[in-house]
């Protein structure tokens, strides 16, 4: 069934099925962390998650119908935002903690060992608190993640060819489906019409904060790489170079 013919319920069901499995760092963490060891654990985990993120994106109904160029552009623009939203979702029931994976959990204070990371941890914790206050539902979370992916490059690409224009139109229709799905998820919560509208506004406004933290995180990782604090390789290197 094409996504344009799916009900919002079916669409959400498909993106729930696309959710990546829980991922483990699978390293012996030697505490206290050093700047290098913490950065190495963070980047190792990110690299593993990135591979699963590509598979997740391909399962979003309609994503693989976009041009390959658009698929690459979208993923390279949003990857850190997607990782951060996932982190917030895992951490939402753990105030003051960042649950990078079931075997890699950090307190805010542990960020002290990496120069400049505490500020990013605080921004991540603040956005997570906001999601906690809003009592973010799983259906809403998966819609927001798909929105981040599909919206990530919308204002920077001007279609030139007929193929690019076709892909952009497909992208816009796909965004419509995701917005419909989010509206439907909110409508199930038994809120008044006005409360539903406000909730939609509050949830989507949080996306601008996530973009902001992601930009900070990207700058931080680039600095750590430049200073040789951490060796960045494989898919993560490809994604990071795309942003520097």
């Amino acid at each position: 069934v094409h996504h344009s013919a799916m009900s919002p319920e079916e669409f959400i069901s498909r993106i729930m099925e696309a959710e990546p499995p829980e991922i483990y760092l699978m390293e012996d963490l030697k505490k206290p962390f050093t700047e290098a060891s913490m950065m190495m654990s963070l980047t190792n985990l990110a690299d593993k998650e990135l591979v699963l993120m590509i598979s997740w994106a391909k399962k979003i109904p309609g994503f693989v119908e976009l041009s390959l160029t658009d698929q690459i552009h979208l993923l390279k623009c949003c990857w850190l935002e997607i990782l951060m939203l996932g982190l917030m979702w895992r951490s939402v029931d753990h105030p003051g903690k960042l649950i990078f994976s079931p075997d890699f959990k950090l307190n805010r204070e542990e960020g002290q060992c990496v120069e400049g990371i505490m500020e990013i941890f605080d921004m991540l914790l603040a956005a997570t608190s906001r999601f906690r206050e809003l009592k973010l539902q799983r259906e809403e979370y998966v819609c927001l993640k798909a929105m981040i992916l599909l919206n990530s490059n919308l204002c920077t690409s001007a279609p030139q060819t007929a193929e690019e224009l076709e892909s952009r139109n497909k992208l816009l229709r796909l965004l419509d489906s995701v917005i419909d799905a989010l509206v439907w998820a909110i409508s199930k919560m038994g809120l008044s019409t006005q409360q539903q509208t406000l909730r939609l506004g509050h949830l989507t406004m949080l996306l601008s904060h996530i973009r902001h933290v992601s930009n900070k995180g990207m700058d931080h990782l680039s600095t750590m790489k430049r200073k040789n604090v951490v060796l960045v390789y494989d898919l993560l290197l490809e994604m990071l170079d795309a942003n520097t």
Binding site: V51, K76, E238
Partner: peptide, 24 residues
């Protein structure tokens, strides 16, 4: 450098059907 060359791994992962769990 073309987009495909600049993003070899990403391009491959988008195009192939190998289980990403194996690759991870």
């Amino acid at each position: 450098t073309s987009l495909k060359e600049k993003h070899k791994i990403l391009h491959q992962l988008l195009q192939n059907s190998t289980s990403p769990v194996d690759l991870a």
